[in-house]
Design a protein around this nucleic acid. Structure first.
Length: 1053
RNA sequence: GGGCCCGUAGCUUAGCCAGGUUGAGCGCACGGCUGAUAACCGUGAGGUCACGCGUUCAAAUCGCGUCGGGCCCA
């Protein structure tokens, strides 16, 4: 049985009710089970990091995922949908460190690595549970009971296995490299973990003394004075010309060498008064120079290093055109160093402090704080040409925000750069939404791909499964726990540090195999998700059946993140991309397009939105606000619009229920096929529209044009269903007997609502379910018990009638135009008009049996459609053309103009048409005019009010007749009695007693003509209409109709 | 310096891939409707579709360039 719903759409109540229903009925599990054996759809959830709180962006992300998966499931796909969690890495270490007040690695070691790891694990698991609850509130149907977690042994093995593969493919390498280094976390960090923002640093110009030339210097510039002790070379651009100048300043004279184009600005900065050019040097000649380190006496490590000049393309025409090279502290420096066989000198330790190699003056100093010491020493050595401050973008550790430094360290690398071309090839095979996400953005990123530093000198992560022999250097990469057991004969219950650190065995050379103490870069964890989630490598079956993934979707930040890391890991192990299609979505920003951040205080929590509006409204909003790949500017106002739209849908649903219940609507009556002959044109129209909607949504969904889906649905609900069909169908629901016309309307509404609930199910799953439960399960206990078990409603082509749809939209336009015309002449819609004339300009207007609809909606007695170009009889207006009248009639011109005002325009036109001239008279005098002296304009006659529509004009005849007036007054009275019924809170079927007293006799007479009609419309069993009547009953009210006082009393019978 | 995206009414946006009258919502003003009604409808004001050049019969849409914003890289 269908139950009546009362009150407004209350999303919170509805959603908690549905959530409970799903839980009790195990709906999610049953939905997934029923699709087993269907075509496979392998989705991999990009694992959110277990921060404990979801934010709007993660909410949007999961809503997209859920909508796609629900859609696929309704399309009978067997969906693989394990949720995933990214649980290792520095962010959690930092959180745990904070909770204990730890400041560095030593504190952790003192506390105990095993306990620290345990805390990290507990922390991650707790956060995961919190976040799961938040995602569930959104209605995200993923497999929350069995998610993949990067901290599980099985998952660790997937990473191990992958590294082993990389090694087999000769893509694993240990080497000295300059890496981004966080001196606080004391670990290498990936390029993608570096955050840039403005920082003010020193900007210094330094003089490097040229060997063998008195008082002569090469001038370099740097923003990192602390790297000067590590300087081993100078780079120059091979195409530049350099100058040697003698320059004077207070207290001395120097010979300086720098790029010719930069001499003047540099000397100005150095406050030199004057200079003379001594000669120029080519880059070739520059390279013959050698120089002495400016702080040679302070830095013992510099002894024995030969300092020369080298050519490098990366040198730009900025500053001095001579670049300070410290291969131990810069990426390009390092590469140049490798190429030119320079010393890789790095007198800085992992803690960011100088080592002994930097000399006793600097040892132990934190490099960022040593800048001033270095500058002072350069100054004392007379090697400082100038110093200043400069604000520029500088990299920071994304976790602890410490400015990073570059140092040369020994790390493990995957040789991704070797795979660049193959990767690009794979990228082109993937389907990207939007297309440019792959062809432009991602390809560009891959073009710049460098080798991937996968080692981190930390604790909470997947341990590197690399063991090396302490004696012979033999290297083994272990792929699984079983393999490790075999090697060492021991069994580990947990593969994390520190237990795994203790595992050793004897090398064939007799030496000891010891694990490399590093852990994986956390990006490597999620990189293996697509096979780890299939329990590979511990099981192979699932992997064979499902891999690679059909679909993934993440934000555009993942271009350099998960899209990339997955591709990299997959290339080294499988030589192909691990996913077939990618939807790249945007970021959630605030309403002004700014990032949501704590410092601005503009963060919106999804929880807050759900509390205020409910999950469905949040879902519909984020899906529909804009194209998925664009950034979403969150707006509460827009959210309210979405809420309004769904509320109207709710009202539309609610509208028919009382009538259906009253008429004992049942499964048999709901069967639309019984009414084929009784369907009205408007019924066929809305059925056509809902099927067109299914077609449109299907098409948009195939292209992941999610915003278009919500837009189509919203248009359908507001325009077609609420504003139009329900208005049309209303009077039919008031018919009292079991009339086929009424039943056909019910069946139509029923069909539309049921279909709509299915179309909306992937996007607003709660609301759809609630409506489905009532309408479908309520009538038919054998129906699928959830809307999410239904099949996706394919468009029924036999119901789609594009001609009818086109005609209806014309009818709507004409109807709007006629409202417009009525408004112009002050004729309310409640008052009928005798006729409406439609005058198309060019194309014929095809009303396709909708004349009846048009009559009803325009409240008119007759509709006339003219042929294209034809018009109703028009009044003709004339206007004088002064420019033409003046020269001919001269002094009497103004009389001609006066004459035109009173002349009959039609007659004048006739004369002009026939003879080319017309005679006018003014105060007894006659004037002749020619056609050019007058301009004619057509004007609708007084009784016709006109308005334009897309195909021409609509003319409404507003002439009143007693019949029309009588109807108008009766409708005024009906409406007021209905209003009073409402006030009395009467039920639709209740009968009343009513008395209407009208103080004006003529109007009373008009109303009396419709007395019976009024009585039946308001269900009045007793009805009096007259003058000076006694008002009796519960409710008495005075009204004013068209300036006349009307007193009405209403009471229940 | 390079790559990508974006720039449409006061605000938020659709349309752009596939060229053919810029469409909506919010807000504002006026009017209407009333058996869904703490709703709803109509009308009005408000647009150099960032700017310039080009292709074309035709450009918000395609191409080139400029400016502004964002993200990423260097």
């Amino acid at each position: 049985m269908i139950t009546e719903v009362t009150g407004q759409y209350n999303a919170q109540d509805l959603e908690s009710r549905i959530r409970q229903l799903w839980e009790e009925a195990q709906t999610y599990r049953k939905v997934r089970e029923m699709r087993v054996g269907g075509k496979k759809f392998f989705f991999v959830d990009g694992p959110p990091y277990t921060t404990g709180r979801i934010h709007l962006g993660t909410a949007w992300n999961k809503v997209i995922k859920d909508s796609v998966l629900r859609y696929k499931s309704m399309n009978c796909f067997e969906v693989k949908d394990r949720a995933g969690w990214d649980m290792h890495g520095l962010p959690i270490e930092v959180k745990v460190e904070e909770s204990f007040g730890f400041r560095n690695k030593k504190d952790i070691e003192t506390y105990g690595v095993d306990k620290f790891i345990q805390r990290c694990k507990e922390f991650a698991l707790r956060q995961k549970d919190d976040m799961t609850a938040q995602f569930k509130i959104l209605g995200a149907w993923l497999d929350w009971d069995d998610p993949y977690m990067t901290l599980k042994n099985e998952y660790l093995e997937a990473a191990w296995w992958t590294l082993k593969k990389a090694n087999e493919h000769n893509l694993l390498e240990r080497g000295l490299r300059v890496v981004n280094w966080c001196p606080r976390c004391q670990t290498a960090i990936a390029d993608s973990e570096v955050e840039y923002w403005d920082e003010t640093d020193y900007s210094i110009y330094v003089k490097f003394p040229v060997e063998g030339e008195e008082n002569t210097y090469i001038v370099i510039w740097t923003t990192t004075p602390w790297t000067i002790p590590a300087n081993v070379a100078v780079a120059v651009n091979p195409t530049f010309e350099y100058s040697k100048v003698r320059a004077w300043k207070d207290g001395g004279v120097d010979v300086l060498i720098m790029a010719s184009d930069l001499v003047e600005p540099v000397l100005k900065i150095g406050r030199y008064k004057d200079y003379e050019l001594l000669g120029t040097l080519s880059a070739e000649e520059m390279q013959k120079l050698t120089y002495t380190h400016p702080l040679l006496d302070l830095v013992p490590g510099q002894k024995g290093i030969k300092h020369g000049v080298h050519a490098a393309d990366f040198v730009t025409a900025e500053n001095t055109g001579c670049v300070h090279i410290a291969p131990g502290h810069g990426l390009e420096d390092y590469e140049l160093g490798m190429k030119k066989h320079l010393e890789i000198f790095c007198p800085v330790g992992g803690d960011g402090r100088y080592t002994e190699a930097a000399g006793e003056k600097y040892v132990g100093l934190y490099v960022k704080e040593a800048d001033t010491d270095v500058i002072r020493d350069l100054e004392e050595h007379d090697r400082l040409l100038a110093q200043g401050r400069l604000t520029h973008r500088y990299g920071h550790c994304w976790r602890c925000k410490t400015p990073i430094i570059f140092i040369a360290t020994s790390q493990w690398f995957l040789r991704i750069s070797d795979l660049r071309d193959k990767m690009l090839d794979e990228v082109s095979k993937i389907t990207w939404y939007p297309e440019w996400a792959g062809s432009a953005r991602f390809s560009d990123w891959i073009n710049n791909a460098r080798d991937w530093c996968i080692s981190r000198q930390r604790y909470w992560g997947i341990p590197l499964p690399i063991w090396t022999c302490q004696k012979c250097g033999h290297l083994e990469v272990i792929g699984t726990a079983a393999e490790l057991e075999e090697k060492c004969g021991c069994k580990l219950s947990d593969l994390h540090r520190p237990d795994v650190d203790a595992v050793t065995w004897e090398c064939s050379c007799g030496g000891k195999m010891v694990r490399s103490p590093d852990v994986f870069d956390v990006w490597f964890d999620s990189a293996v998700a697509s096979w780890a989630t299939l329990h590979f490598p511990s099981q192979e079956k699932e992997f064979q059946e499902w891999w690679p993934a059909d679909f993934i979707t993440e934000g555009h930040d993942q271009t350099r993140g998960w899209f990339y890391s997955q591709l990299g890991a997959s290339m080294v192990s499988f030589g192909r991309a691990p996913y077939k299609s990618v939807l790249m979505h945007g970021f959630t920003l605030d309403d002004q397009g700014r990032k949501m951040s704590k410092s601005i205080g503009n963060i919106v929590q999804p929880e807050e939105v759900v509390q205020k509006f409910g999950a469905d409204i949040l879902r519909a909003y984020v899906l529909g606000a804009n194209a998925p790949w664009e950034d979403l500017h969150f707006s509460w106002e827009a959210l309210e619009n979405t809420a309004r739209m769904l509320n109207i849908f709710w009202n539309a649903y609610r509208f028919a229920l009382p009538y259906m219940i009253l008429d004992r609507f049942d499964a048999e009556k709901a069967d639309l096929s019984r009414y084929e002959k009784s369907l009205r044109a408007e019924d066929r129209w809305i059925l056509s529209r809902v099927n067109s909607l299914a077609e449109d949504v299907t098409k948009s969904m195939e292209e992941y044009q999610l915003h278009r889906i919500i837009r189509s649905i919203s248009d359908f609900i507001l325009e077609d269903l609420s504003r139009w069909y329900i208005q049309l169908v209303r009077p039919r629901t008031w018919i009292e007997q079991d009339d086929p016309d009424k039943l056909a309307a019910y069946a139509t509404i029923y069909e539309v609502l049921v279909k709509l609930s299915r179309i909306m199910a992937p996007f607003t799953p709660f609301l759809s379910e609630a409506i489905y439960q009532n309408l479908v399960v309520g009538l038919n206990p054998n129906a699928p018990p959830s809307v999410h078990m239904c099949e996706w409603p394919k468009a029924d082509a036999s119901r789609i009638d594009k001609r009818l749809e086109a005609s209806m939209s014309l009818v709507r336009e004409i109807s709007e135009a006629s409202s417009n015309a009525r408004q112009k002449s002050g004729r309310k819609l409640r008052w009928p008009v005798s006729d409406i004339v439609i005058a198309p300009a060019k194309d014929a207007v095809d009303l396709d049996n909708l004349e009846f609809v048009l009559k009803g909606q325009t409240n008119s007695k007759k509709i006339t459609v003219l042929s294209p170009g034809e018009k109703p009889q028009m009044d003709l207006e004339m206007a004088p053309v002064h420019k033409k009248i003046g020269p001919v009639h001269k002094g009497e011109a103004r009389f001609v103009v006066e004459a035109l005002k009173t002349a009959n325009a039609a007659l004048v036109k006739k004369q002009l048409d026939e003879s080319g001239k017309a005679g006018l008279s003014y105060e007894g005098k006659n004037y002749d005019i020619t056609a050019e002296m007058v301009q004619f304009k057509e004007k609708p006659p007084e009784n016709l009010s006109a308005a334009e529509f897309s195909k021409g004009f609509v003319y409404v005849n507003v002439t009143l007749t007693p019949e029309l007036e009588s109807e108008g007054y009766s409708r005024e009275i009906i409406r007021r009695i209905q209003d009073m019924r409402k006030e009395l809170d009467l039920r639709v079927e209740d009968q009343i007693r009513a008395v209407v007293d009208i103080e004006s006799k003529p109007i009373l007479d008009l109303a009396l003509r419709q007395k019976d009609h009024i009585a039946s419309e308001v269900r009045a069993a007793e009805f009096e209409l007259g003058l000076g009547l006694e008002l009796k009953g519960k409710l008495v009210k005075d009204w004013e109709i068209e300036g006349v006082c009307v007193r009405i009393s209403v009471d229940r019978k």
